[in-house]
Nucleic acid binder design. Structure first.
Lengths: 212, 212
DNA sequence: CAGCTTATGTTAATCTTATAACAAGGCTTG
DNA sequence: CAAGCCTTGTTATAAGATTAACATAAGCTG
């Protein structure tokens, strides 16, 4: 049984799916064929209850008294996450962070294809990163017209992030992966990842620790 | 009134504090002196109720019928986050991501000082990034013995992340900022940031969008 | 092949988080 | 300087998420 569409999936569950996927992939690579919720949860650092609760939002993947078949479950979660089809991504803003993202080796295994890179700095334009040449950002509208792009990654300075997103939205991009620390005005799904915020959270926890 | 220690602060609240800090800093830079929960929440994309609820976990910063004094509130939140004192950070793993983190311009305003960089690749060792020279990872224990380091940033391949963390923990580091996709065995507070997981979450949401 | 063991799917209870409502108190204005 | 208007702090309510419990069903063993 698979993915009972219609029912709302909890956001918390969704954010754990990629973790499940990673661990299952590792198990599968090791040739392990089955796993119990207890053991998988143990590795992940979660609880059996939560794991089962999460999975059962999408269907029944396990077998009573046996556990979960790794390969099958991995395949199901891959499908739920949408990994069965290739997605094209572009990156705008090829500073240090943009470079790092473009060089990220793990896109392949997640079925993500780097389609284009954009920047405004003349010194960067023409540079080739991960087999893709950086173009001027002015070329983006035309590029988007000629190519169906799924993911727009924003690693520009915050001042120009909104502009980039607007261009992407008009160009038919389906979702935004945002590294710029600004609230974006768009109807597209946005996944936000901000280094500074994450670091401050750690800072707070370090401070609290010292108090005790 | 400030920071009623003892009461437990909700994790969700904590993760929003850095956002509040950013927006307040922006307001303060613009010379704005006061702001209401309604307006601030509007900018952030939150609700007035949640904002007040969050702030009141730490104390009473506002004034009835007036709102919040920006400079004072900013100062309070800075103190709560622990931004009043400088923290030293080291980075282990100077691949593309490590380079990007080391080059991150916003550490200064968060009172973070880059103290050292480590890698094992002979080609990288000796390179200077953000005024700091990359050393061999073998030097880390000695370095930690001679310097009190607060934050250990891990941007190594996953296979060696645990080893790096163990070394850091023994060396007296207070918290781990982890970019490697592995569960770390440590008693230190860990702040986890994984690009791949974030991207998969976006992928899922894009897929769900298309269904409708 | 029958009974036992095991680990699921699911329901129930607890705990956490978010939204809404409202009384209290300070600013502002005429 | 007093009355009214805001906007907070706080309490109450609702929604959401996690943990716990248990009945059910499949594999395994003797």
């Amino acid at each position: 049984m698979l993915d009972e569409s219609g029912s709302k999936i909890s956001p918390r569950t969704i954010s754990r799916l990629p973790v499940y996927w990673r661990y299952l992939k590792e198990l599968d690579d090791f040739g392990i064929e089955r796993i119990s919720s207890r053991e998988l949860a143990g590795r992940i650092g979660s609880t059996p209850s939560q794991l089962r609760q999460d999975l059962n939002q999408f269907g029944h993947f396990g077998q009573h008294g046996y556990g979960y078949p790794v390969e099958e479950l991995l395949s199901s979660i891959s499908q739920i996450l949408g990994l069965n089809r290739t997605r094209k991504m572009i990156i705008v803003g090829m500073g240090n962070l943009g470079m790092a993202i473009a060089s990220y080796e793990n896109f392949g295994r997640r079925n993500i294809k780097l389609a284009a890179l954009f920047d405004v700095d003349p010194e960067r334009i023409g540079t080739v990163v991960s087999d893709v040449q950086i173009q001027h950002a002015d070329e983006m509208p035309k590029f988007l017209e000629e190519n169906q792009i799924d993911i727009g990654c924003v690693s520009t300075p915050p001042e120009v992030a909104q502009e980039a997103v607007t261009t992407m939205e008009h160009g038919g991009v389906l979702g935004i992966w945002n590294f710029a620390p600004v609230k974006l005005q768009t109807k597209l799904p946005v996944e936000h990842l901000h280094l500074g915020d994450s670091l401050l959270e750690l800072l707070y926890r370090i401070g609290r620790r010292e108090d005790k």
